[in-house]
Computed example of a mutant assay.
Amino acid sequence: MSMASASYSQYPSPLANYDEVVADPQLFMSSLEKLHSVMGTKFMIPIIGGRNLDLHKLFVEVTSRGGIEEVIREKRWKEVTSTFNFPSTATNASFQLRKYYYSLLHHYECIYYLKMQDCGPPSTGVLESSNTTPGLVHGLPKMPPAQAASVATTLQPRINTIEFVPGGAASSVGNSVIGVIDGKFDSGYLVTVKMGKDTLKGALYQAP
């Protein structure tokens, strides 16, 4: 179970204030691990470009710019990514950072930076509709361009039902796929789709 997909009624109380966790990386990590433990979600130290991701730095860089939603709204995510100096071989570093922020730090930001009491998915206020055709779908079933375009225009900030015929074009008859946009990044959307009993998370890219 991931932080982005979990549903809770109320956040646990913070163990420190924002200034304290920003000033003390060890306090930050211990409180972050504690949060995942209390909420029953998986915690790990991601690896990008062959080295451990500095989650404390990522949290500070994002919240110092107003938080994840403000960064996305102001299109400053590349600015955040550039502070890490990833090697050129880490071609998907920006997407990876965004994914790990939502899965590992989104709720932590809500508690320690935004001082929220209730938790839930990222706000849909920063999401924008797009009429461009997705060129690649990561983590989702492979589908022809026509079907991918249908998914992009059907998925909205609120859950919708779409039809998907494996290996074929979009049709009114097929397996029911429930999809929701979890977040937006420079080249597309972070999405979650449910096919029967399976819940799949991935990225829906827009063609240039």
Rank of each mutant, 00 (worst) to 15 (best):
S2N: 14
M3R: 03
A4C: 14
Q10P: 00
N17P: 00
N17Q: 07
Y18E: 06
Y18T: 01
V21F: 01
L27M: 15
F28D: 01
L32A: 06
E33C: 12
E33A: 05
K34I: 03
L35M: 15
V38L: 15
M39W: 07
M44L: 12
I45C: 09
I47D: 06
I48G: 10
R51I: 04
D54K: 10
D54Y: 02
L55E: 04
L58E: 06
V62C: 07
T63P: 04
G67T: 06
G67L: 01
I68M: 12
E69V: 09
E70I: 04
V71Y: 06
R73G: 11
E74R: 13
R76W: 11
T89S: 13
T91A: 08
N92Y: 03
L97H: 02
K99R: 15
Y101I: 12
Y102N: 03
S103I: 08
L104Q: 00
L104S: 01
Y108F: 10
Y108A: 01
Y113L: 05
Q117A: 10
C119F: 01
T132H: 13
T133C: 09
G135Y: 02
V137Q: 10
V137K: 02
G139T: 04
L140T: 07
L140V: 07
P145G: 05
A149D: 15
L155G: 02
P157T: 01
I159T: 12
I162H: 09
E163F: 10
P166L: 12
N175G: 11
D182Q: 13
T192F: 04
K197W: 07
T199Q: 09
L200T: 02
Y205S: 13
